[in-house]
């Protein structure tokens, strides 16, 4: 059992990190906003954390706080103009932001451009990661049902009606964008201090799609759905790899194919998350 745990330690860590990332997408999704800036926010958090660790001896908790705070601060001037956009236009604008951040780090010599920063001390362990996830889950669990939480639901269902009920929709959407940015930055900081390195390639469009798919597969009707989705989609490839080698067929392309088929089956037959997506469009 202990051996098994040690063998899969990094998998457990990545379930936690991906869980945080899926929650960061859920933060805006739960008030009906499809924002795809989170890989960019994650990059800002990762680089902020890594640079502080490499150039100072600040305690890790302060490093993580800075990793969460930096993208949260960036989210304010980003959100004020882009949150006026709706649906697919918001998605496109935020993808643009993500690419901007990535290209910034590719071209920034101070952080070695596309090579990124390496030899970051491993300061994040399983418990720091899972404690962070627990705090995030608690936060989102308590928001639901509160006055603030009902306002978010109202915005998701009908923004115009919400406004005439006295809800400052822009402020609420901005608050959730900032919260999502903070969570993504925190996850970025944790990952940087777990994998020893940060490089712009890890924060491209594919990364935010991965977060979104995990959140949607898990289901956005409940705050724990995204974490379940992250756990499922992080563990699945490993299970398939293991099963493949036991059954004696080479992993490789078949594994990816099977992974895709299972993903498709989940979306087709467990449309809980997709239902809320459809509702948002209506």
């Amino acid at each position: 059992m202990r051996d098994l745990f040690l063998a899969y330690q990094s998998l457990v860590a990545f379930v936690g990190i991906n869980g945080l990332l899926a929650l960061s997408v859920y933060a805006t999704l739960c008030c009906g906003q499809l924002s795809l800036a989170n890989a960019g926010f994650m990059a800002i958090g990762a680089y902020t954390g890594a640079l502080i660790t490499l150039h100072s001896n600040a305690p890790f908790i302060a490093v993580l706080a800075a990793a969460a705070l930096a993208p949260a601060l960036v989210a304010v001037p980003l959100g004020l103009p882009v949150l006026r956009l709706r649906g697919v236009f918001l998605a496109i604008a935020t993808i643009g932001f993500g690419e901007m951040v990535r290209l910034f780090f590719v071209n920034w010599d101070y952080t070695n451009g596309a090579m990124g920063l390496v030899a970051i001390p491993q300061r994040a362990g399983l418990w720091t990661i899972w404690l962070s996830l627990a705090v995030a889950l608690y936060l989102l669990a308590r928001v639901r049902g509160s006055r603030f939480g009902t306002a978010l639901e109202a915005i998701r269902e009908d923004e115009t009606a919400a406004r005439t009920m006295g809800i400052d929709t822009t402020a609420h959407k901005l608050a959730m964008l900032v919260l999502g940015a903070g969570l993504a930055g925190l996850a970025g900081g944790l990952e940087a201090h777990y994998t020893f390195m940060v490089a712009p390639g890890g924060y491209g469009f594919a990364r935010v799609v991965e977060m979104l798919v995990q959140a949607v597969v898990g289901g956005t009707a409940a705050f724990f759905g995204p974490v379940a989705g992250a756990a499922f989609l992080t563990v699945l490839p490993e299970v398939l790899r293991e099963a493949g080698s036991r059954l004696g067929f080479a992993p490789g392309p078949f594994r990816l194919l099977l992974n895709g088929l299972i993903l498709l089956a989940v979306i087709l037959y467990l449309p809980n998350g997709l239902v809320s997506l459809k509702r948002r469009k209506a």
Binding site: E153, A154, R156, E157, A161, R279
Partner: peptide
């Protein structure tokens, strides 16, 4: 009508 369709009447 602009109700919050997915919520209960009470909500």
């Amino acid at each position: 009508i602009r109700l919050f369709a997915g919520l209960s009447a009470a909500d």
